[in-house]
């Protein structure tokens, strides 16, 4: 069979018949495309080069110290753990809320006015800059009745900065992404799948739990990975709400709760603080941390591509088989 496959003929295309404006535009188009490639390559290669230059394996397992001298400021273990905890906690708070909202919007959505309001609300959060979320969170968590989430000083003043507080505000960043992805997934399920489930005597609630939820799991995963990437990359909420202490500093006395209500830092805030913009000038450490951060984002991005790539080919015919 393969022997018979005919060759593809080459296209004869000549620009001489084109208008000069078209030729100019095409040249610009190539220039932009090549500039994009060059920019992409130089950013990624430069970060890769610096990362490999400054990232030594022991940095990953050593705790940082407050020294100004780059050779003595220790590793980046705490920021890595901070990023991991914040990412996991933030999405863990966001996912249940977001999935509920998405299912309610798609499957119920009554009364219509309320649904529109919820939709717009989610849209507003999606557009809210994280710095606004950060200072909003600080004021809220400094209310006396939320003092148990962080640390209350002698005089009754609430610190307002803690891992759990930062995670709660971070969940607002992930929420719209998970809602969006889940809604898209639900909308992609053809109506006859639901009808088939009802025809088998299943209730709407059972249909949602046994049919729809399993089906949108890839979409939820996509939204979650996107949300994790955004959380891992956010700096504003960390430096304002996480306390931005170099080390993870749990509150004393309580094993797990102490960690949650304690303070810490993440890779992003570590990069910021070690750049000339922050206090330290430990740019070698900043590059190393930025490289690790880039790897985290790369992995999450790859996860999204895998989930989306895997399902978009199968999703269309999944139900029509």
């Amino acid at each position: 069979m393969a022997a018979a496959a005919p060759k593809r003929t080459g296209a004869v295309e000549s620009y001489s018949t084109w208008r000069w404006t078209d030729r100019l535009a095409l040249a610009l188009c190539w220039a932009c495309g090549i500039a994009l490639c060059v920019a992409a390559a130089s950013i990624l290669l430069y970060m890769g080069f610096r990362g490999l230059q400054y990232l030594r394996p022991e940095l990953l397992f050593e705790r940082p110290t407050g020294a100004v001298d780059q050779t003595k400021s220790g590793g980046i273990l705490d920021p890595i753990l901070g990023t991991l905890m914040l990412t996991v906690l933030g999405t863990a708070i966001a996912i249940p809320l977001a999935v509920c909202v998405a299912i309610w919007l798609v499957e119920y959505g009554r009364p219509a006015g309320l649904a529109r309001a919820v939709e717009s609300g989610v849209e507003i959060v999606a557009g809210t800059p994280s710095i606004v979320l950060a200072i909003f969170g600080l004021i809220i968590f400094q209310q006396p009745w939320l003092g148990w989430l962080s640390f209350t000083a002698e005089g009754g003043g609430v610190f307002g900065r803690s891992l759990i507080n930062a995670s709660i505000m971070m969940s607002f960043i992930a929420l719209p992404l998970v809602v969006g992805a889940t809604r898209e997934g639900l909308n992609a399920i053809p109506g006859h799948v639901r009808e088939a489930s009802y025809a088998l005597g299943k209730t709407k609630a059972a249909t949602i739990r046994r049919v729809l939820l399993p089906a949108v799991r890839p979409s939820i995963a996509t939204g979650t990975a996107l949300g994790m990437g955004r959380i891992a990359g956010d700096t504003a909420i960390v430096i304002i709400l996480l306390g931005n202490t170099l080390l993870i500093e749990p509150q004393e006395g309580m094993p797990v709760l102490g960690l949650l209500t304690g303070t810490g830092s993440t890779l992003t805030s570590y990069v910021y603080e070690n750049s000339p913009a922050g206090e330290g000038g430990a740019y070698e450490k900043a590059y190393a941390a930025a490289f690790v951060l880039l790897l985290v984002v790369l992995v999450l991005n790859f996860a999204v591509a895998r989930v989306v790539g895997g399902s978009s080919t199968s999703r269309s015919n999944l139900w029509n088989r």
Binding site: A5, P6, K7, R8, T9, A11
Partner: peptide, 13 residues
């Protein structure tokens, strides 16, 4: 030569 716009299409003859 519109078949040239379909990436998979090939022609001979």
């Amino acid at each position: 030569r519109l078949t040239e716009l379909t990436p998979t299409a090939t022609r001979e003859g």
